Simulated assay, not measured.
Amino acid sequence: MNNEDVLADVEKHANAIIRVCSGYQPAYGLLVIRPDFSCLNPVHATLDSAFDTPPTAELGTYILGRLPAELKLMVLRELDILSFFRFRHVSRRARELSTGLWEYNLVAKHGREGLRGLLRAGLAHRFTICDLYQPLITEKCSTCDAFGGLLFLLTAERCCFTCLQSKAHYHVISPRIYAMLSVIHPARLNRKSIPSLRTVSGRYTLTTTPVNPPKRLILAEHATQALLAAKVIKEDVIQVLRSQGDEQRQRYMATTLYPWYNLKNARPEYGAGCRGCQPPRGLYLDDQAFSARGFLSHFSQCAEAQRLWAESEGGTGPLGKPECARPYSFHSFFFSNWLAI
């Protein structure tokens, strides 16, 4: 196909091209903190809705009750997530007001993995609803230009799997190991109020070997900066930490899946891989995930994807099933929300 034909097809048959030429979710979804949608279904309806019965009382006779609605919403945006949910339980009026917050409404509907991850990791008191809203509407990884399908919980940043694996920015370590390498007492880490993540049970591996996670993880970069500023450690500790390396699986323990919410078409996108770039068999940790518009840009340069499109006769003919169909539980959930642009 020449470039003009490719561009014409992309413009005319965008949804069909995505349906035909993308067909699997990269396997990193199996490694990070995984959502269990079945157990969350009873809770979902209460997250993004108010009570059916209208409120009969205001928030009180004091300052908050007398504020205009716009100022009340400004106050809610500054609350940490734990305080926000406590406020929702105060009264029907409080729940109605908090549900009407645009950022919360979007996060409660489409960013539940982030909410659940922060609550389970014991980090919800460190972030606001707006801290989750910003990565939800941001397509790119915070450290590169690739599509980011993950949320790094210790900083509430969107990231891609490649950066999660390779960047020192995402180096996590147990407080005990960090204290041992930096030759300080573990109590000093606690006194400096360095954010720590409570790990949750999970596999975090594609093998059958069970993983026994540490109880807590800290971000090595945060800990080092805080301790250097307090003159508790010296610069040579940085070299010690780099030479020691880190266990990559622990990075997965601090990360969860997180969709990108496309404001232009009001749809969440988890990202998907290209069938044309797909190796013959196996699980593909290194495959790049694309958003819908990112995939169309990739399609215009991928000869194999264009060949698949030509074989499908414009999306009308049969196409062989991928040899690597992914049998994990949330596969169909991803693609039911991904195809439309």
Rank of each mutant, 00 (worst) to 15 (best):
R188Q: 14
I137N: 06
R116Y: 14
V183S: 15
L123A: 05
C163L: 10
A146K: 12
V183F: 11
I194P: 00
R188F: 13
I177P: 00
R116F: 14
Q134W: 13
L119R: 12
L136G: 02
I177G: 00
C144T: 05
D145M: 12
N190T: 14
H171S: 05
K140L: 10
T155L: 13
Q165P: 01
F161L: 11
I129Y: 06
F147V: 04
D131N: 14
S166W: 09
P135F: 09
R176M: 03
Q134R: 15
N190H: 13
A146V: 00
H169P: 00
L123E: 02
L118T: 01
A124G: 07
A168V: 10
R120Y: 14
R126K: 15
R191D: 14
L151D: 02
S182W: 01
L123N: 03
Y133K: 06
L150G: 01
L154S: 02
A168D: 09
L123F: 04
D145R: 15
K167N: 12
H169G: 04
P195E: 09
H171I: 00
H169K: 15
M180E: 08
G149T: 04
P195I: 15
S174T: 11
L136W: 06
R176L: 04
F127N: 07
R188W: 14
Y178D: 01
Y133Q: 08
F147W: 11
R116L: 15
L189K: 03
R188Y: 13
T162F: 15
H185N: 12
G148H: 03
C130T: 12
S182Q: 09
I194Q: 01
L132E: 08
Y170K: 02
Y178P: 02
L132R: 07
R191A: 15
Y170D: 02
T162I: 10
G148L: 09
T162G: 11
K192L: 12
K140E: 11
C159R: 04
C141M: 13
I137R: 08
M180A: 06
C130F: 13
T138P: 08
P175Y: 09
C130P: 02
T128Q: 14
I173A: 01
R176E: 03
A187D: 07
